[in-house]
Write a protein that binds this DNA or RNA. Structure first.
Lengths: 133, 133
DNA sequence: CTTGACTCTATACTCCGGTACAGGGTTCAT
DNA sequence: ATGAACCCTGTACCGGAGTATAGAGTCAAG
């Protein structure tokens, strides 16, 4: 299979496939005499793996770690769980932070009495009263 | 006040002050004969405004919009509320998305039976079963 | 009057994850 | 054997929000 076919099956851009190869997320494929990359079906699975991990919020670096661990064999399963747990905790932290933000904006909007001075409106309340979330 | 003093008082980098000026978030200050920027206290307040809006999740572009609206006068208060509301909704959406991610990872970790095949461990479950969050 | 801290502009670089282009070579069906 | 569609490498660019560096000029204290 050539790169265009792989990209189509995995639903990504051709450049993205080459990027993942360069970042060592994707094994270097065989090459034809012409220099063309020649892939097997496994490449499509690998790319889907990467995309799905991305959808779960893993960064490409984390995904590389996971793939490297997998190469090490089954004894690194605990390490992989650790990466997943760390990512989950980071997501939780991000959620907490965003909830603080949304609540501060919400409160500012509801309490606004729009005094006509700098900075103005919602933002006087918001930025003076809730300076430290 | 020179730029270093302003930056120190607002707790940002000197470069950041110049960046904000270039992005038109911050009014161009007076200049000495030497070319040095000469600021008043208001600049410190402006920068704090920007930082606090940033802490609430506004992008610099949104902040620029807010500042521009403020220059228009009080009739644009409704517009400012609209920007704040839009930002709040975007934050809510982001929170929902992150909650899906964290739940999928959590489920994967808890259900994991670690079959020794590609991709491995948590991720077999995770990426095959929860392909579409 | 010199020295060290500060400032000026312009440019480049960082991270993150791609995406686009230029200027070539290849494949394949007609 | 020719033209469209594909592929190659290398490089540059996007957005977002800065940070760093180079090379020059300025300010103020000793």
């Amino acid at each position: 299979m050539r790169i265009g076919e792989v990209a189509a099956q995995a639903q990504v851009n051709v450049q993205t496939v080459r990027l993942y190869e360069r970042l060592e997320l994707l094994a270097k494929p065989a090459r034809r005499a012409s220099g063309y990359r020649e892939y097997t079906d496994e490449a499509v699975l690998s790319i889907r793996f990467i995309r799905q991990a991305k959808n779960l919020g893993f960064t490409l670096n984390e995904i590389k770690s996971l793939l490297d661990m997998r190469k090490q064999g089954s004894h690194s399963i605990a390490d992989m769980r650790a990466v997943a747990t760390a990512r989950m905790n980071a997501i939780d932290e991000k959620i907490r932070q965003l909830q603080k933000m949304r609540n501060a904006i919400d409160k500012g909007l509801r309490n606004c009495k729009c005094p006509e001075q700098f900075p103005a409106c919602v933002f006087v309340e918001l930025f003076e009263k809730f300076e430290k979330l």
